[in-house]
Nucleic acid binder design. Structure first.
Lengths: 200, 200
DNA sequence: ATCGACCTACCGTCCGGTAGGTTGGTGCAT
DNA sequence: ATGCACCAACCTACCGGACGGTAGGTCGAT
């Protein structure tokens, strides 16, 4: 390590300060939202001056957008992978795998995912197109899964698939408000959720 | 109406401007959250100067707190009333009545309830004690109802009552993100939700 | 005369963003 | 090997504007 400076990116892997900034921004956005989280705060937590952020990002908006989209992507990647791994398995097992993956990613990348759900919940600040696209893509994963489960008879065919999707995602995402790692075990929660949802 | 002024409370019922301010604040808080909603904005929408707000409230915090607590209270009153009306009815009917009441109040007082759920979701701004108390009181309503339904066998006894409560409330409250009055009918949604939750 | 309701004018503070350096490592021609 | 141009990374200093809140006055009904 060089002796004369406290610079971070200078000593880290190239491009590493970008990730460091995003990690920090995610943590602050999670607890403070868009308007309470300031660039000064982010810069101080990272250990650089505020103006230096503009070397890596063009605006506050760009930082926030990156965090929010990463949050959705983390969850989507986990669920897609879980569904690929359980290809051909019984419907019940696939649903439980998807729920487990969603909850695990949700709480494993808490800063990013919580920021994702909270930052752009307000209608006044228009949601950037990239964010809407990311969310739509993830919704499609569940749309397809629910259609598959209904076709297989694991979910009642007479129920509205839209309402079931909203319900399942709402119940899962609500867990960011009450889930505490010490108090619950993700797999247990996933099993309870599956049991309450699946037709018997 | 008096000729020389545009004053609102001067011409309205005594104390009416307080409600008008809260209605306006609720509408703005719903779409903008705490930090994006400014006193200047509220004052302008009401039709008075910003400083005049301080004649009715001591601070921004006090306005927000009133809105948020009203939001919870509206929902709680509706659910408690619905449960009183269905006293002695079959468990299934009581759950559906509670869900219907919750959803109806949630979307009937959209500005207040949405503000309630969104304004204090951030950990950095400490949630005022009065708000925490109001939320706890409402949670108790559901805690009791679920215990009753489990005892009656309408909900599976082997499931965690806490998780069921979190799940039901999460699914219902998530509807503020997707419910559109023209696209859905509250009673239909309530029936679907009940059907998906209740043991068959 | 009193007072609730509302006003104008102002305060210190913090915001996102910009202008224009400084620093130190890397590669290259000599 | 060494001088030097280059560039990513970061810096100090500043901007206009918006924020919540305060001081102190006006006005009209009772």
């Amino acid at each position: 390590m060089s002796a004369a400076t406290d610079n971070l990116a200078r000593d880290a892997a190239p491009g590493g300060s970008r990730r460091l900034i995003l990690d920090t921004a995610a943590r602050l956005l999670r607890s403070g939202g868009y308007h309470q989280t300031t660039l000064r705060e982010i810069a101080e937590a990272v250990g650089i001056r505020k103006a230096s952020l503009y070397h890596h990002f063009a605006s506050k908006e760009e930082i926030v957008e990156a965090v929010v989209n990463d949050g959705v992507r983390f969850v989507q990647d986990a669920v897609v992978a879980a569904l690929a791994e359980t290809k051909g398995a019984p419907p019940r097992q696939r649903l439980e795998a998807a729920i487990t993956a969603h909850l695990t990613a949700l709480h494993g990348q808490r800063d990013y995912t919580t920021a994702s759900f909270r930052v752009f919940t307000f209608g006044a600040t228009p949601v950037p197109e990239s964010v809407r696209a990311a969310r739509r893509a993830y919704e499609d994963v569940w749309r397809n899964l629910i259609a598959e489960l209904q076709a297989a008879g694991a979910l009642p065919k007479e129920r509205s698939p839209d309402l079931m999707r909203y319900m399942i995602l709402g119940a899962m995402n609500g867990s960011i408000d009450w889930f505490r790692p010490g108090r619950f075990v993700t797999a247990d929660v996933a099993r309870e959720f599956s049991a309450l949802i699946l037709a018997r």
